[in-house]
Write a protein that binds this DNA or RNA. Structure first.
Length: 514
DNA sequence: AAAAAAT
């Protein structure tokens, strides 16, 4: 079976060939012919099975007839996360290079202006996360009654994220004469109900992930003390021990704060790391992901935003800094490695309080996970003797290392609870404690800082932008200058606070949060 | 004990 057997148009086929593909994956072979005939599809497939192309390619072929009208997109693809949406857009660009298609990506965290323009121009392909899509609609910028093809991707994940009511609302806005392509990795009852309501005589295409995948991942549990500094030390030792084999790695944490803390800590220890979680500025998220994909970053510290769906080929290692609370997340996380038949390694750092979660994971995967270096009964209680302190300046104090870590834990966290996220944990504070590092790393950190600065200023610009373009549309008759002034004031407050001058305390400055 | 998503 080759792609040319599936009934795709010559334009699509040539783009597929140029991308270097000749053989469709099972989900592609199963779904594409039916999708081309206009049938509804129920695709049960995980990521890494070629699912995205299984709807992108037939959609491109079908879009060759007809043209989009202003504010009336012809197709709509719903994705649970911003990164996934962006990834689907890349697919449309890659395989649609022989088409003249208007593609619009509607996701949160970025300005409305550009999205509005694309809608106005008429979008053939609209890719969106539910929140921003509904936002556009409520502002009257978007009519959904011209949608011919609707794709709901990663439905089970949308369920986990509480998007189902939004999805139902959106489905009801689209004429029932549409074609619906529906994808989910699992079929819990709520999802089945949804398919019964919104799919018409769907063709069911089910693909199990290649059995080799599970067995090609070497899984280990690693015992650790439970204090954050214990876990960080365990992780660092593990990373060093794996260094020779390790090409790149994703390090998963359960919480966003932990992602930030661990990221900063790894930078201090000269690891070439980036961070990714949902509270980060959207630009920074995209940038981190791109850098990791391009091999400019070797380690990516991430929340579960990166656990599913993201197409990051060739990850050699997955580290679970925390044992995931939900067993399925473990499967998704370690599934980031050992893809496409390659081998991968996963290490899960476990503390005494994690045993019940480990039990649940082992029950789910139907296997015991081996301990890397002895199980938890061999963990020594860890109050005093840590490694040598690594302070950049000042006399090394007794238990300096621990002190520094306490700071992470005891000082920053409470502040974050009370302060706005953007004010929490200014990078300056972390950088103050930088040990004297190798040149490359210092330069790297400088670059990062510069980028944060850029992100920050872009944000303020974008805010001002939005005020300018949106206010008149709301029918607000006040002169534009008035609406801009408060924004400008705020900006001045941030940059050069009256009364503090150059001595403004770091915590009062607004910085891009990582 | 979490994360994600509209502001």
């Amino acid at each position: 079976m080759t792609f040319s057997d599936l009934g795709l148009s010559p334009k699509v086929l040539s783009a597929v060939t140029d991308a270097g593909y000749t053989q469709p994956t099972p989900i592609q072979a199963g779904a594409i012919p039916h999708a081309l005939l206009g049938k509804d599809i129920l695709g049960i497939a995980q990521t890494g099975t070629g699912k995205t192309a299984s709807f992108v390619l037939p959609m491109l072929t079908r879009l060759e007839k007809g043209r989009a009208r202003a504010r009336m997109p012809r197709t709509l693809i719903l994705e649970p996360t911003r990164e996934l949406a962006a990834q689907v857009e890349e697919n449309f660009i890659r395989y649609g290079k022989n088409h003249k298609l208007n593609i619009a990506l509607l996701i949160g965290g970025v300005s409305f202006d550009e999205q509005d323009k694309k809608l106005e121009r008429g979008a053939d392909v609209l890719i969106a996360t539910p929140g921003r899509l509904l936002d556009h609609r409520e502002r009257g910028k978007l009519l959904l009654n011209g949608v011919e093809i609707l794709v709901i991707d990663e439905a089970d994940r949308m369920l986990d994220m509480g998007f189902i009511p939004d999805i139902e609302r959106i489905c009801e806005m689209i004429p029932f004469t549409r074609q619906t392509l529906f994808f989910s990795a699992t079929m819990p009852p709520e999802i089945t109900k949804l398919t019964e309501k919104f799919l018409h005589a769907p063709v069911r295409v089910e693909v199990s992930k290649a059995a080799s995948t599970a067995t090609s991942i070497i899984q280990r549990l690693v015992k650790s003390g439970s204090k954050p500094w214990d876990k960080r030390e365990t992780l660092r030792n593990l990373m060093k021990a794996e260094d020779a084999e390790l090409k790149n790695a994703i390090i998963f944490c359960n919480r966003k704060v932990e992602v930030s803390e661990l990221f900063r800590s790894l930078l201090k220890y000269d690891f070439d790391a980036g961070a990714l979680h949902g509270d980060m500025d959207q630009r920074a998220r995209m940038q981190m992901l791109a850098n990791f994909r391009d091999g400019k970053l070797r380690y990516l510290v991430a929340s579960d935003v990166a656990a599913r769906g993201l197409d990051i080929p060739d990850v050699s290692h997955v580290f679970n800094y925390d044992v995931p609370i939900h067993a399925e997340d473990y499967v998704h996380r370690i599934g980031r490695t050992g893809r496409a038949g390659r081998s991968g390694k996963s290490f899960t750092i476990a503390t005494k309080s994690d045993t019940k979660y480990i039990d649940a994971i082992e029950r789910l995967i139907g296997n015991k996970i081996e301990w890397h270096d002895g199980d938890l009964s061999t963990v020594v209680a860890s109050e005093g003797e840590d490694e040598a302190p690594r302070r950049g300046r000042g006399a090394p104090r007794r238990a300096g290392r621990k002190d520094e870590d306490r700071k992470d834990k005891g000082e920053r966290k409470p502040r974050e609870r009370h302060a706005k996220p953007s004010e929490a944990a200014p990078p300056e504070a972390a950088h103050d404690e930088q040990p004297v590092a190798a040149e490359a790393t210092v330069a790297d950190i400088g670059e990062r800082r510069a980028r944060k600065e850029a992100i920050r200023s872009e944000n303020t610009e974008r805010k001002a932008d939005r005020n300018e373009s949106r206010t008149p549309e709301r029918g607000d008759s006040r002169p534009q200058r008035d609406t801009n002034r408060p924004a400008r004031h705020r900006q001045e407050d941030n940059d050069a606070t009256v009364g503090f001058g150059d001595d403004m305390p770091a915590f009062m400055r607004i910085v891009a949060k990582v």
